[in-house]
Design a protein around this nucleic acid. Structure first.
Lengths: 336, 336
DNA sequence: CTGTTAGCGCATTCAA
DNA sequence: TTGAATGCGCTAACAG
């Protein structure tokens, strides 16, 4: 499939001038005759000329494109964050390309290579649940391409990051359950490769400790975030000799799954089991009963991540990378 | 921010050989001494060398990258389609970059320019609801960059496309309402810039005609797909002297909004108002009552779109662009 | 104000 | 098997 796209040389030839002049006319360079510029612009328009960004990037060594790498975008969370980040970046004159890895480490590595090969000027990342080795991201660092983590962060890498206050969110959620009279509060936690998971787990633990409740290992289950596994573990918990009277889940989809299981078992929510989720997925206010959950400020998250990246790219390479933690908030609905 | 990335020249110099040889070693060219190749590969690894895709693309005039342009990805629909398309494209050795336009025509044009400037080898598009002028996409065509439309297609452009059978889906949905005894069936339609909207409207109309029911203009309302407007029109319909006994909506989020309005007005669903949505958003099975809706085969949609694009790129430029229409299916739940 | 020249990083002829 | 030379499309430095 050979195709010829109009180049400045085509324009120069047809106008009988040099390609430098064409280039200058096209880039609003001051030193060019108004009339000449006019002619160039008209012919460019007519020939449907488009600057070849590839050539410019090769020359300037910057693409004005930034890459966003996310583990998935089925859940509402990542799309929202991306959109708000994109708004900031677009306003700053950057293009945004998005890659999603389907929670696969291998795919993430491949995406990282693509982004690197295409020489993005900066990278916004939230890694997959499988990612334990971060060499593919350190490569960016080594090449001085700014990287900013959001949501799922690698604490070992010395780069800026933005997270929400998972610890506090979890603490308050569990506190709420305790204060409404629950005593056997279970926690469906995510894989412990994810710091958010660990922070939420700590918040859960500390809330129990703070109120003098025992921490029962049998009530804490880590799983891989798939709904199939969630279903199995929920039933497992409910089949315990002493089943929990409340369940705090790592995210809203999981909490919804709990709701479904309760429905099918004829368990009343919240009387027989109280449920609290995490993230305030739009779905959580539509189910019956409404789901109590912890709000993550998705828009702020995207905005902050973009801001940190812009800072990093626009040079002010501070010695201490900035780390932003955004507040979370509990929304109480019918499920608790 | 000046940074130097390792090039083949660095490798060549350090090894005291020419860059051509390095290039050959790196590209698995047959004519290169095994030992030399070995040394090159080792040093490349050690220096953390990455091929500069920009330079290669400039040279070969192809990027092995394809662009996906969608109007939004908040709803579950587009992410799903993208993921399945991406699977096919990745397998075929292409990289995928995604741009979303937030339903803004202006943003879509800008994204199209970005993708063009970055010389994608092919484009998968679903346009915004505002798009009426397709010049920004015709540009790709003029430059022989294959374009494939999916879901929201421009019928005037002579390119392959994939859609679902909106007409049939709507027909069957309305038929179902009629057969379950409804007689005043309203339709909340989308903007008529979108062919899907028109097709669904036609399906709705023809079903009424087919069963000898009158078409009441006051029961058909086009709107802009925002939930705020949806809310206004839903209330408007329910306030009619003769309110409808069923409501068929352009999509599931709108149907959910209907459900919410009914809840707040104390209207029983489906007894006082039956509701049927479109697209089988995961949310539709979680609400109470479950939402009757028309399934769109999202995975097939993405796969087919990718297949058509690969065909178009891999040369077989057939005279008649292929147009695929995928079947839809009604799922009956509690809301009807 | 305009033309000439160089070079970004690479693959690919053509010679050796 | 290897090296030298060419050019992809463009901007920028330099010279008129």
């Amino acid at each position: 499939m050979q195709r010829h796209l109009t180049t400045i040389i085509d324009i120069a030839r047809q106008l009988g001038i040099s390609k430098s002049t064409v280039s200058r006319a096209l880039t609003d360079h001051p030193n060019v005759n108004a009339k000449t510029r006019q002619r160039v612009l008209e012919l460019a328009e007519q020939l449907d000329y488009q600057r070849n960004q590839l050539a410019i990037s090769l020359l300037t060594n910057q693409t004005r494109t930034i890459g966003i790498l996310v583990p998935e975008f089925i859940s509402y969370f990542f799309p929202r964050v991306i959109i708000s980040a994109q708004q900031v970046l677009t306003k700053a004159g950057y293009n945004v390309v998005i890659c999603q890895s389907g929670e696969s480490y291998e795919m993430e590595v491949s995406n990282a290579h693509t982004l690197l090969a295409n020489r993005v000027d900066g990278l916004l990342v939230s890694h997959t649940k499988e990612t334990r080795n971060f060499d593919h991201l350190r490569t960016f660092q080594r090449k001085s391409i700014p990287v900013v983590f959001f949501n799922r962060v690698c604490e070992d890498m010395n780069v800026p990051n933005v997270t929400v206050d998972d610890y506090r969110g979890a603490f308050v959620a569990v506190e709420h359950l305790i204060q409404s009279g629950r005593r056997r509060i279970a926690h469906l936690a995510g894989p412990d490769s994810l710091p958010n998971t660990r922070n939420r787990l700590n918040g859960y633990r500390d809330a129990l400790l703070h109120y003098g409740l025992p921490i029962e290992p049998e009530l804490i289950i880590s799983y891989d975030l798939t709904l199939e596994k969630a279903n199995i573990y929920i039933n497992h918990l409910l089949n315990l000799p002493q089943p929990p009277d409340a369940l705090f889940t790592i995210n809203d989809p999981t909490a919804i799954e709990v709701l479904k299981v309760c429905r099918s078992r004829g368990l009343h929510v919240p009387n027989e089991l109280a449920i609290v989720g995490f993230s305030n997925d739009p779905i959580s206010e539509l189910v019956e009963p409404g789901l109590t959950t912890v709000v993550q400020p998705v828009d702020d998250l995207g905005r902050e991540a973009a801001r940190l990246l812009l800072n990093a790219m626009e040079g002010s390479a501070t010695e201490m990378p900035e780390r932003v933690v955004l507040p979370t908030q509990l929304i109480v609905r019918g499920s608790s």
